[in-house]
Amino acid sequence: MRKVIILLFFLYILVLVQAGFFAHFPIFGFFPNFIFIFVIIINIFEKPKDKLGLCAGFLGGFFLDIFSLSNNLFFGFYTLISLFLVICIKFILMRYVQLPTESR
């Protein structure tokens, strides 16, 4: 639970920094989405069965939905995309990636 609260604050600050500060810094005309980058990283590096990555996906997507200014997008679009991304990463890691274990 403590981890989730820390994650919530971290993602909130990250989305504010992205929408406020980094809105002035396009990279070749594009704006990197730090929330998605963070969600992907946390899901790759945690154990596939852990739930923190799923929480990060939901919270990150939810904050993106709140702070993105788009009239034609369904509210919840980013949350669903983010959750779908998390599920895909977890599925690939579980099914196709086998991390080396210690030999006895």
């Binding site: 909130y12 504010l16 920094v17 929408a19 406020g20 500060f21 980094f22 809105a23 002035h24 810094f25 939905d65 709140i66 702070f67 509210f75």
Partner: peptide
């Protein structure tokens, strides 16, 4: 979704405005 968005904008606007100005300067 409108009141939810408004609530978050309301609590974040001081920080966001500050970040916006800093970003613009940088």
């Amino acid at each position: 979704s409108k009141p939810i968005k408004n609530f978050f904008y309301l609590i974040s606007s001081p920080v966001e405005q500050m970040l916006f100005r800093k970003g613009s300067g940088a």
